[in-house]
């Protein structure tokens, strides 16, 4: 009886086998493609140059301020005029890498007429799309971990001390945040590559969205806040309400979320991202670092929202891809 029930259930649910059959074959092939592509090599070179420049600058200013805590984190966050900090560069290098990894993921298979041939192999479309996404994510992770190790190594070499356990932990968490920040742009580019048949269109659409959040969204956010929560009487409550609204609106942009999470992790003295009233600071030792657990608590919403949006965008791409007719 129960068995019979099970078979009808599986018949309703439909398909035999795991949707992930062949997933790793796709991942391996796509990663090999990424890592050998000229496109990726150019971006890696770009990252290396910015990392070299910013970290060299940071080392200069760190040397003059010895005895400080968290020197290794400062390697990433110290800016020396005229260069911004390395994490600042990552804020726009990561989207660039992510978009360049995925904007032609699906449509190039159509244009090369390889899609029908590959999907005629014993795999599901699930494995094909997921494989492409994971390959992009792993490639980004590989690049970021490599650069992190490189910078840390450079730090040990020139500072003459080893990073503490907490610094390593904060560094790894930062990598996780960075990877999923890239995940959003990767999923977005993948989505556009399923929608648009021309890779150029998909690339431009992705870059348009990125520029919108990078440049225009903060302006729009303050305009919106002025309209939605106007300051009529100049009361402190009104000012606070508007400032809070601006902040919440800017957090719609993944860039803001990434910058805040980076600050929380790499700058342990960060206690809050919002406005802090003097009354809330009673009893606080200003300038003293938070323990790791507290910092993680602080950026937890940021990390989860980055992951959630990545999954959401991938799901939309997935649904569209499943419904797509594969004949060109």
């Amino acid at each position: 009886m129960a068995q019979q029930h099970e078979t009808t259930l599986s018949a309703q649910r439909g398909r035999e086998g795991s949707p992930w059959t062949g997933l790793w074959a796709v991942v391996a092939k796509e990663m090999a493609d990424h890592l050998t592509s000229v496109r990726m090599q150019i971006l890696e070179l770009l990252i290396l140059i910015t990392a070299g420049g910013t970290v060299f600058g940071a080392l200069q200013s760190i040397r003059s301020a010895r005895g400080d805590n968290f020197l290794f984190l400062k390697l990433f966050t110290t800016s020396t005029d005229p260069l911004p900090a390395f994490v600042g560069f990552l804020g726009f290098l990561i989207p660039l890498i992510a978009i360049s990894l995925a904007f032609d993921a699906v449509n190039s298979e159509f244009n090369q007429r390889t899609l029908s041939r590959v999907l005629a192999q014993p795999i599901y479309r699930d494995a094909f799309l997921m494989g492409k996404f994971l390959a992009g994510l792993f490639t980004m992770a590989l690049v970021l971990v490599a650069i992190w190790l490189l910078i840390t190594g450079l730090g040990i070499f020139s500072l003459g001390i080893a990073p503490s356990g907490e610094e390593v932990a904060r560094g790894l968490l930062f990598l996780l945040v960075a990877i999923f920040y890239g995940g959003i742009w990767l999923a977005l580019a993948l989505l556009f590559s399923t929608i648009f048949r021309q890779p150029a269109t998909a690339a431009l659409a992705s870059i348009a969205v990125w520029l919108f959040f990078m440049v225009f969204w903060s302006m729009l956010a303050s305009m919106l806040a002025q309209a939605l929560a106007p300051i009529r009487l100049g009361l402190i409550d009104e000012v606070l309400a508007q400032a809070e609204l601006i902040q919440n609106l800017t957090r719609i942009s993944p860039n803001t979320v990434f910058v805040e999470a980076t600050m929380g992790l790499l700058n342990p003295t960060t206690r809050s991202f919002g406005l802090v009233l003097p009354s809330q600071l009673q009893g606080a030792l200003l300038g003293s670092p938070l323990p790791l657990g507290e910092s993680v608590l602080l950026i937890w919403p940021h990390l989860t929202s980055l992951i959630a949006v990545t999954i959401l965008l991938f799901t939309v791409a997935y649904v569209l891809f499943q419904r797509q007719e594969i004949r060109a």
């Binding site: 439909g14 035999e16 005629a120 192999q121």
Partner: peptide, 12 residues
């Protein structure tokens, strides 16, 4: 329902 077995035995 059984695309994997089918596609393992059919070339296209």
């Amino acid at each position: 329902r059984q695309p994997l077995s089918l596609k393992a035995h059919v070339g296209y």
